[in-house]
Design a protein around this nucleic acid. Structure first.
Length: 285
DNA sequence: CGGGACTCCTGAGGGC
DNA sequence: TGCCCTCAGGAGTCCC
């Protein structure tokens, strides 16, 4: 599910449901995710309390009472959902309500009255445990770029970042070392609102265009968060609900359909191996 | 070093 | 119906 808005929604739901709860047991059903789940995790986190849940880029950081942090990335299809474990039998109503298949459950945290289940069809996500002090220097976190809502992100910051870079702006936006949290959907949408062709080179962008990119990325992300994220292919979030930002897509997935701003049809091209959607007339080089 | 192609994995959908 | 191909919200690795 996951670009920044979807991860943010997941974090907010986790906060609501599992903060302050104690981990009474851990079940690793299938350790083979992007990185093999280290079985030692089970012993290390059992009986610890969940004291804080945060988002950094597209990562979920679950801090535990012994100064360790579970670092979770959802990959393409990772998601958390909950199950009531108060009864003897698992509550299976969520399976009929959503398209979740238990065969893709890989990791389960048993908490007081509730199970937190990590489900991931394609297994591109991962779960790692770090000591809190090692987390920021970890390979996953240390090279991350600026957060989209960080006040330090302004056009001068971007201008400095793209200095000497002769790279398609779409690729720049997708690279987490620059601005983090954006993925394929939102990069496409942001460039449409900014009226910039996705292949336009970073060193060709005007100050005005850089300002538009920053303005629109915040606008698009905020709006998506407000809508509960985007749901593709009946993808359900942690509470068995779908986000609805997909109905606001201006270009993503709209190849050959009419542009909402002009009479042109939306084009689709490949940039860095990812589908890129744009309007040839509204978005100029 | 920067940047593009390839890779991991499963499932959905289209064409024949 | 079945088979084969392509594609999918990510990002690390390899190679030039």
């Amino acid at each position: 599910m996951p670009e920044l808005p979807e991860v943010e929604i997941a974090v907010r739901t986790l906060k609501k449901k599992i903060i302050h709860k104690q981990i009474t047991n851990v079940i690793i059903k299938n350790p083979k995710l992007r990185y093999k789940i280290n079985p030692i995790i089970k012993l290390k986190i059992k009986n610890k309390k969940i004291i804080q849940i945060k988002r950094r880029s597209k990562y979920i950081l679950i801090s535990l009472s012994d100064d360790s942090t579970l670092l979770v990335h959802l990959g393409m299809t990772g998601r958390f959902y909950f199950n009531n474990n108060n009864k003897k039998k698992m509550d299976v109503s969520i399976y009929s309500k959503t398209n979740i298949l238990p065969k893709h459950d890989h990791f389960i945290l048993k908490l007081n009255k509730i199970n937190l289940i990590y489900n991931d069809i394609r297994k591109f996500g991962f779960i790692k445990l770090y000591k809190k002090k090692d987390l920021v220097d970890s390979e996953h976190i240390k090279n991350l770029g600026i957060e989209p809502f960080d006040k330090k992100l302004n056009y001068k910051f971007l201008k400095n970042k793209i200095k000497n870079k002769n790279l398609a702006i779409k690729s720049f936006l997708m690279d987490q070392k620059n601005i983090c949290g954006l993925g394929n959907i939102y990069a496409n949408e942001i460039l449409f609102f900014s009226k910039i062709h996705p292949l336009k080179k970073t060193n060709q962008l005007s100050d005005y265009e850089l300002k538009m990119i920053i303005y629109n990325l915040r606008r698009v992300l905020n709006s998506a968060i407000k809508q509960g994220g985007s749901t593709i292919k009946n993808y359900y979030n942690s509470e068995g609900n779908t986000g609805s930002y997909q109905s606001y897509f201006k270009v993503y997935g709209r190849e050959k359909m009419k542009c909402f701003s002009c009479e042109n049809n939306i084009s689709k091209i490949n940039i860095s191996n990812r589908a890129s959607f744009f309007c040839q007339k509204c978005q100029r080089h």
